[in-house]
Design a protein around this nucleic acid. Structure first.
Length: 471
RNA sequence: GGCGGGGUAGCCAAGUGGUAAGGCACGGCUCUGCAAAAGCUGCAUUCGUCGGUUCGAUUCCGACCCUCGCCUCCA
């Protein structure tokens, strides 16, 4: 049984076999955020997807080097810097910090490296130099450097590995930017953008004059630098397939830095978009939520993570309040079961129960079929609840179940969901209520129950006595 | 126009050439002084439409309808 993943290059599900001859080390790159504003949760769907891949590879015993770039120089950033009067670093620092906080709130493991584009200018210039030296790039009349797709194709390379391209039928360059009129062909893309007055202080020297990197080149330069010229996995949102990832391949393979016969990236994976009422969530449509918006409405990062992980990564789905509500209720069901297991196990730790972990692996090995994995988890919860209700679950079995959950949760990243301890004054009220009930003074006991309810807690009367739960 | 995804119960969502996981919601039940909470349980003769292949199709093939995305900054 092996891990199988969809590869955009072949448009099919393939066995995942690392480049590492030992089969252990895995290099994984995920296109990260452009830090010009707060990310919305559509963006975070992709990052949570990347976190799932990373956690599952960790779980399966691979030694993963996970790289995520921080794009901290780009048109929108420059515009904001000009508006605010802040320095580039001051401006992007704020949003970079917010991004990292959001990752934490969504229980994403921190990537191994989080390189900033502005700290890899040297590598970028070096890569552009290689492309110019090989005749695949040219300095245009406007002083910018462009990548030539026709030269690249002329050299026997394939432009159009990730998508079927037919330039005659495509609407390439339908809306050509005014500042890019100097390109030889509309499909050519910028490697280095010549400095313009609006850039203010945002520019770097280069052999071709002052300017800044084009959009795609940073990912090539940083991934090659940190993971080598050929690595295993490259992820991103599906909108990046073309042109961003196609251009990354062209630049990276065009530079001729790979060993003979080796590709830049072995395995490309793309996450589908999050929708809102059937439309792609995006800044331009204005139909987006930031994590902060949702936290402000009382949803937790954990609940949002549960929603973002609710369906297969290659399927779009609608993000909605109903979805959040459903996630909250299902997590409560899970937590309830785990809480009962803890009470029963009473510290009994054991070897993880095998069956559920095996089924969980079978589901995720199949191109990360997370929906099937949830089916395994909740089918298991149902069976445990049945045994708990019948009283047939032993403390040892409860301990084994908890150990199994520990394994599973190292991938799902939802936490144990341990309940909060009730404040002592409420515990005292609860004791008073019990006394009143015993004395059959139900008027008083109901009043105490209302009082506890008003404080935001509910009483759960169980066969083994009352418990307090946060409402 | 080119290319690529989707259409499965009220909602979300797996899946298989042999008759439909799971979650939410809803109904019933258990527990309870009454409740609440929790648990159990029930809930698609049917998988966009129409044809075809087959002993048998939701699953394979064809046509059609609807819908989303990429081709422009974009997760």
């Amino acid at each position: 049984m092996a891990l199988r993943l969809f590869n955009t290059l072949s448009r099919s599900v393939e066995d995942f076999i690392p480049l590492d001859p030992a089969g252990r080390a895995v290099g994984m790159y995920c296109c990260g955020p452009t830090v010009y504003d707060y990310g919305h949760i559509g963006n975070f769907r992709t990052f949570v997807f990347a976190d799932l891949v990373r956690r599952y590879l960790d779980f399966r015993g691979y030694a993963v080097t996970h790289v995520m770039n921080i794009t901290d120089v780009e048109d929108k950033i420059i515009a904001r810097v000009r508006q605010t009067g802040l320095s580039l670093r001051e401006y992007t620092g704020k949003y970079e910090q917010a991004f990292l906080e959001d990752l934490d709130l969504l229980f994403c493991r921190r990537p191994t490296h989080l390189p900033r584009a502005t700290e890899h200018i040297e590598g970028i210039i070096d890569l552009i130099g290689k492309l110019l030296a090989r005749g695949l790039a040219y300095v245009a009349g406007d002083g910018s450097v462009y990548f030539s797709i026709s030269k690249y194709r002329g050299a026997g390379c394939c432009y159009g590995q990730l998508v079927n391209l037919n330039f005659d039928e495509m609407r390439v360059g339908e809306r050509v930017k005014e500042d890019e009129y100097a390109k030889e062909a509309v499909a050519d893309f910028a490697l280095w953008k010549r400095r313009v007055p609006e850039d203010g202080a945002v520019f770097w020297p280069s052999p071709w004059g002052e300017g800044r990197p084009g959009w795609h080149i940073e990912c090539s330069a940083m991934s090659i630098r940190l993971l080598g010229p050929s690595f295993d996995l490259h992820l991103g949102g599906e909108d990046l397939v073309f042109p961003h990832h196609e251009d990354e391949i062209a630049q990276s393979e065009g530079a001729g830095v790979q060993a003979p016969g080796k590709r830049f990236v072995k395995h490309w994976m793309h996450g589908a978009h999050l929708l809102v009422e059937g439309k792609k969530m995006s800044k331009s449509l204005g139909n987006f939520f930031t994590l902060r918006d949702l936290l402000g409405k009382g949803w937790s990062g954990r609940e949002i993570r549960r929603v973002l992980l609710s369906s297969h990564y290659r399927e779009t789905f609608n993000f909605s309040t109903e979805g959040l509500q459903s996630a909250r209720a299902s997590l409560a069901r899970l937590d309830e079961c785990l809480g009962k297991l803890r009470d029963l196990a009473a510290g009994n730790a054991g070897e993880p129960e095998e069956g559920v972990v095996r089924e969980f692996i079978e589901a995720l090995d199949d191109d990360l079929n997370i929906a099937a994995a949830w089916g395994v988890v909740f089918g298991w919860v149902k069976e445990l609840n049945r045994q708990l209700a019948e009283g047939t679950l032993t403390p040892a079995k409860a301990g084994a179940a908890l150990a199994a959950w520990g394994r599973i949760d190292s991938v799902l990243g939802l936490g144990g969901g341990g309940g909060t301890e009730a404040p002592p004054e409420l515990v005292a009220l609860l004791a008073d209520r019990q006394a009143a009930r015993k004395a059959k003074d139900f008027k008083r006991s109901d009043a105490l129950r209302d009082q506890i309810k008003a404080a935001g807690w509910v009483i759960e009367d169980t066969p083994s006595g009352p418990k307090l739960k946060k409402a």
